[in-house]
Computed example of a mutant assay.
Amino acid sequence: MFPLNRPRRLRSSPQMRRMVSETVLTANDLIYPLFAVPGDGIAQEVKSMPGVFQLSVDKIVAEAKEVYDLGIPAIILFGIPETKDADATGAWHDHGIVQKAATAVKEAVPELVVIADTCLCEYTNHGHCGYLEVGDLTGRVLNDPTLLLLKKTAVSQAKAGADIIAPSGMMDGFVKFIREALDEAGFQDTPILSYAAKYASAYYGPFRDAADSTPQFGDRRTYQMDPGNSREALKEVELDILEGADMVMVKPALSYMDIIWQIKEMTNLPVAAYNVSGEYSMIKAAALNGWIDEKRVTLETLTSFKRAGADLILTYHAKDAVRWLLEG
């Protein structure tokens, strides 16, 4: 009771506040997304994501070196193929763009952890995450045939040097099928980071510019989750854990911190949060207009994800965040 209890005593100086801080953001918490495209010497800025670029493999390697030097432990690779088809060939071909980028990064920066996004929407000519019924214009993906493509994609990525496989298509049973395929191919030690609770979110808009993955028709609501559901997220996570996931992810992060917290409460596995493109671009746009302090808002947002329970944060802010943290 006041005046005996004065919580402000422990806020009286920067040193005191650091001593009692409950949540501390570090470079080790962050994963940096990169977008690989065919060609050489290419660095094409994504208009809806200031500071984010589509990069050729040589530029990806240069970025990887910078990321490693900053102390960020991992990158996640997305690919934009030269051509697209109904079989998503660019996703699972041994000479696919993500495979080339993974191999080049591991040769140049072997200690950097390379995560491969294992999905098909960037590689199909219709922009959906798998096979569709002939003539279908709703975007309803055929689940079980798509699992065969995901198996091939995961094994191809692991062969190319990917340290972690991250399936993101929200197909039923995808963790089980990928785990079996990796084990059969001799990659028993390759972890799976499952996009276990991926919502059908409006926050993905700028990413679809970056990855050239906008659906040509329909939407993804038959396989991504309803934003109003939380119990369903727990069910999805539980199933993925039973199927062999080593880590689980919540995507997006900003509007889903309650989901991050609930999942962290139910499992001892590492929980990742994807600070997605729309969340990034809102901060960038407001900062460019002088409406907010970009540094403070970014670090507050990332710290909030960690406070909610995220062990890992995939974020386009990663490099800037680490530089700001080093500044103190």
Results as ranks from 00 to 15, higher is better:
62 A>Y: 09
140 R>Q: 13
300 E>L: 06
297 V>M: 12
275 N>I: 08
229 N>F: 15
270 P>G: 08
116 A>K: 04
324 W>E: 15
61 V>Y: 02
208 R>G: 07
66 E>Y: 01
254 L>V: 12
184 E>R: 04
105 V>P: 03
158 A>W: 09
22 E>A: 09
94 D>I: 05
127 G>V: 14
5 N>Y: 10
213 S>M: 06
85 D>F: 06
112 L>M: 03
141 V>T: 04
5 N>K: 11
190 T>I: 10
257 M>H: 08
230 S>L: 13
241 I>F: 01
195 Y>F: 03
59 K>W: 06
38 P>A: 02
60 I>P: 14
63 E>V: 08
168 S>P: 08
75 I>L: 05
202 A>Q: 15
252 P>L: 03
20 V>D: 04
311 D>E: 01
288 L>A: 12
304 S>D: 12
102 A>L: 03
305 F>Y: 14
162 A>S: 15
233 A>P: 11
315 T>P: 11
82 E>P: 08
247 M>N: 05
63 E>K: 10
58 D>N: 04
259 I>E: 07
268 N>C: 09
120 L>G: 03
253 A>V: 12
111 E>D: 06
281 S>V: 09
324 W>L: 15
139 G>M: 13
35 F>C: 13
218 G>H: 10
36 A>C: 05
172 D>L: 02
71 G>H: 04
256 Y>N: 13
184 E>T: 05
53 F>K: 14
74 A>N: 01
317 H>Q: 00
78 F>T: 03
187 F>E: 05
307 R>H: 13
165 I>K: 00
279 E>S: 07
159 K>H: 02
243 E>Y: 04
276 V>E: 06
3 P>E: 02
55 L>Q: 03
32 Y>G: 08
312 L>Y: 07
